[in-house]
Design a protein around this nucleic acid. Structure first.
Lengths: 225, 225
DNA sequence: TAGATTGTTAATCGATTAACAATC
DNA sequence: TAGATTGTTAATCGATTAACAATC
């Protein structure tokens, strides 16, 4: 598989392709052209073919793409078949919701354990995942393979916990705290953020933009009428 | 305020600026240059000045930017002072977590009510927000101002519920379901997605990329040594 | 005043789109 | 075979960066 500086934009589109291909599979669609795929995703056929060409040749002239084949290729590119294992740190509301509801295995991950300080949680199990004491975090990491830590701790301990994780060899962090973790320090982990507030504020912007546009239009037509 | 086709990239950076400015304020920093801000955010000073210039002139030559002033300008651009009201539909794990934990008012929103079908939930309150029956959803929307619906329902009803919301005048949807809602239909609402799986898969990609690079390096140095 | 830093115009870089030969 | 559609090269478009006059 080629791996030559693929742009962030391309990478962010890959999960969307995967999702669409799964949907097509469910609907019994076995074959699709870049044109049709573009229609359904709001992208140009050119862009889709360019995106795929970063990684190889998955189609066939005159035919298009075989849906299951393309799906499995993209899954492979995303690393879904690598069996990464994860731990979750901080079993608050969001942590709990993820443990109960989010199907890590659907995306190739194994959520092996969770950690919290609350005594009443320690020793219990959510969604089949055991909750251990934060005191055992370091020893756990050192004795088990941990590729990703899901960070769902309170804001004020986010940086400290990240430091502990990183220093003990955790390479990647899925960050649900509203804290910017990627300070350009020494051995920076890979950080992927879920910033709820950033998302909501973008939405707020788009609503405001649309309202302002409408207000302008209304004012204009009032003048005319 | 200017509003001339601001690119998506710029809009997505605004919440980050806001977050950083809040942090600076907390640390008692009252003044900052685009150079210093760039350092702290990993952006070029040029880009920061370009971004701001989409909306007006917020700085002062030879001085830089006044932190509280810039903060309030960006808050205004994002629409944080517009008092948008929201409802939440689907009080499952994620819905519950948002109601309990996510401070809507911090971002200028008012979460007024939540809706679910589960009888044991109806009539109760989470985080001060009353839970009403789904049967009352339409009448509620028609008799109250609802700018945004937070969509935290199960996957299979996401499209139906969205249709109901849109048809009754809800303009914007904050979508937590793993479903692509923006089909190029008629009166499309504004949709902002939180796709957990997309995010995790991107992370998966980045880990895989790094591992592959390291493997290549290792193989290379083995050959040499 | 001199130094600093803005806002903005111009230059560069990268990403998207268009075009087309290759080929199933 | 003829039609369809790929993978890829070239053209276009947009976003980022650099440069600099304006000015606090």
């Amino acid at each position: 598989m080629k791996r030559l500086k693929v742009s962030n934009n391309v990478i962010r589109r890959l999960p969307r392709y995967l999702r669409k291909l799964d949907e097509l599979s469910e609907n019994g669609v076995n074959r699709i052209s870049s044109f049709e795929l573009g229609q359904q995703l709001g992208l140009t056929p050119s862009q889709i073919r360019q995106d795929f060409s970063c990684f190889g040749e998955f189609g066939q002239q005159g035919y298009g793409y075989n849906v299951p084949v393309l799906r499995s290729q993209i899954a492979g590119i995303l690393g879904m078949d690598r069996g990464y294992s994860a731990i979750l740190v901080g079993v608050g509301n969001i942590g709990h919701a993820l443990m109960d509801n989010f199907c890590f295995s659907d995306w190739g991950f194994h959520l092996a354990a969770a950690f919290d300080i609350k005594p009443s949680l320690i020793g219990t199990t959510f969604g089949g995942v055991p909750i251990l004491s934060m005191e055992d975090l370091v020893s756990y990491i050192q004795s088990h393979p941990v590729d990703v830590a899901v960070l769902t701790v309170p804001k004020d301990v986010a940086v400290t916990v990240t430091k502990t994780l990183t220093e003990n060899g955790v390479e990647a962090i899925w960050n649900f705290t509203n804290v910017e973790l990627t300070e350009p320090n020494s051995n920076t982990p890979i950080v992927e953020n879920i910033h709820f507030s950033d998302s909501l504020l973008s939405l707020s912007y788009f609503i405001s933009e649309r309202r302002d546009e409408n207000a302008i239009k209304a004012a204009r037509s009032e003048k005319q009428g």
